[in-house]
């Protein structure tokens, strides 16, 4: 197994960013902060896909005279829709956070869990 630094460096950066987002999601009790971490995770996944679609010397996939090499349009299509769907689902998550704040008075998940345990007989 040979390790090619130049061939993989941006996948490695993407993995680092992904793990940063993952860390925020599992380590921080604040629900809004969790959603921020989820967004970072999401953007790094998008970046992974777009990096895979890049072709050396290619150009944007719009047909024009004199251009022969194009980058792969398929990941672009998938990610374009995923971005808009991502913001819609983030909005749904934020709406749930607002309702949780209303019901419990806090958005820290450890406090919510403590309240839940108190309520149980």
């Amino acid at each position: 197994m040979e390790i090619n630094f130049l061939g993989h460096y941006n996948y490695w950066v993407v993995i680092f960013l992904m793990m940063t987002g993952f860390y925020v999601v599992i380590a921080r009790p604040n629900l809004v902060k969790k959603l921020i971490g989820l967004n970072i995770f999401q953007i790094s996944v998008f970046l992974l896909y777009i990096s895979m679609g890049k072709v050396d010397g290619g150009s944007a996939p719009i047909l024009a005279e004199g251009i022969k090499i194009f980058s792969n349009p398929l990941p672009h299509v998938l990610i374009l829709t995923a971005i808009v769907v991502g913001v819609a689902t983030t909005a749904l998550g934020l709406a749930l956070v607002v309702r949780i704040k209303e019901a419990y008075g806090t958005i820290e998940d450890d406090e919510i869990q403590a309240m839940e345990e108190e309520m149980e007989p």
Partner: peptide
């Protein structure tokens, strides 16, 4: 990375709308 459509969407949605909602 040649993904102009995606860049356009991300700039409008990610940097715009989702910041406002948060």
């Amino acid at each position: 990375l040649d993904a102009v459509d995606v860049a356009f969407t991300e700039a409008a949605v990610g940097a715009g709308i989702s910041t406002v909602l948060m």
